[in-house]
């Protein structure tokens, strides 16, 4: 069965990538400055206490043995303990991750809702004013540093115009029940419309900031693959059967452009999670990005590496999902005729 083989191959590849990620994380633990034994024993520990911690952590073992321990620990969900919160890193991340996923989901929504139609229109009106305008807007979004754009939006839209809250995830004194960890959803579940709209208002600016640089990329990707589709014979023939323009553009051209588009969107989801590092700090939001920044500033080695691992796993999972989605939208793939992943068009950074 072609489909089963394809899925098995993708799963296996995901496993290989995950293994590589763990190797990388382990190398970072070993080579980065900072002594884990000292960190574990505490700042004021005596030399004897540090030696005891070293013994306990197995740091005197050969590197391969250490790696084996590290790997089995990671597979059991033990990413080590944070020296700052004195909790398991995974538990810390589980607390903050939903907030980041909320931010990424909102940014992705903005990315798709603005970027895809922008790319379609630019392709349809290529070379015309609208195409040029779209290119300029996209370029501005792509070249502006994220933190700077965040500050600018805060200054203009929040501070001057008062349209959005300046920072945070809820207004002063507002609280939501801790159900899913995703504040907008928890606010919705609490049944208080005012609370929900407050949570939503707090989400918009950071999501917009996060999405800005990605919109340009997806718009360019959609534009270039739409140009290819719109010039194809099957589009001309669809017109020749009397199909209307909307049908031609959406059902024929865009439907074909979905394949490269989904590849890029999948990658973008992973990148976005990385960029939350900048956005969450700027907007004082909770999340894995903010957690990582704190961990770096406090020399909290296991927390930093744990965050990297988790972001990496999210990346692997989204790519796996994209591979499966492609199976659905690209019939040629099901018969093993098309390349497993179409080469990404030029607009990819």
């Amino acid at each position: 069965m072609n489909v089963a083989r394809y899925v098995a191959r993708r799963l296996l590849l995901s496993g290989v990538v995950f293994f590589g990620l763990v190797v990388l994380a382990f190398v970072l633990v070993t080579v980065l400055p900072g002594d884990p034994a000292r960190a574990a024993a505490g700042r004021n520990a005596t030399a004897a206490q540090v030696a005891e911690a070293r013994e306990r952590l197995g740091l005197d073992d050969p590197v391969l043995v250490q790696f084996w321990h590290y790997l089995t620990n990671v597979l059991q969900g033990d990413l080590g303990n944070s020296v700052f919160t004195h909790r398991a890193v995974l538990a810390d991340i589980a607390d903050v991750l939903p907030s980041s996923l909320e931010l990424v989901a909102a940014a992705m929504l903005i990315n798709i809702v603005i970027g895809v139609p922008l790319g379609v229109l630019a392709a349809y009106r290529r070379g015309r004013t609208l195409d040029v305008m779209a290119r300029i807007v996209a370029l501005l979004g792509a070249t502006m540093p994220v933190f700077w754009l965040g500050l600018l939006l805060q200054l203009v839209l929040s501070s001057r115009l008062g349209l959005f809250p300046l920072y945070g995830q809820l207004g002063f004194g507002e609280r939501v029940p801790d159900i899913t960890g995703v504040i907008t959803i928890d606010a919705l579940l609490s049944g208080d419309p005012a609370l929900f709209s407050s949570a939503l208002a707090h989400l918009i600016l950071p999501a917009l900031t996060l999405a800005a640089s990605f919109i340009a990329v997806i718009a360019r990707t959609v534009r270039s693959s739409m140009i290819t589709s719109l010039d194809a014979d099957y589009v001309t023939l669809a017109r020749a059967t009397g199909a209307g323009e909307l049908r031609v553009v959406v059902r024929h051209a865009l439907r074909n452009a979905l394949v490269p588009m989904s590849t890029i969107l999948g990658m973008q989801l992973g990148w976005m999670l990385g960029v939350t590092v900048l956005v969450e700090s700027t907007f004082s939001r909770q999340g894995i990005g903010a957690y990582m920044v704190d961990a770096v500033l406090q020399n909290d080695l296991y927390a930093v590496i744990g965050s990297i691992l988790v972001i990496g796993v999210v990346f692997i999972v989204t790519n796996l999902v994209v591979d499966l989605v492609q199976l659905w939208i690209n019939p040629r793939l099901r018969d093993g005729l098309a390349p497993a992943r179409p080469a990404a068009p030029e607009a990819v950074r």
Binding site: T236, L237, A240, R255, N256, I329, N330, P331
Partner: peptide, 14 residues
């Protein structure tokens, strides 16, 4: 209308 190349005349994903 019928075109020359049946390979490119049909939409590959439909």
């Amino acid at each position: 209308l019928v075109f020359q190349d049946p390979l490119t005349s049909l939409n590959p994903v439909m």
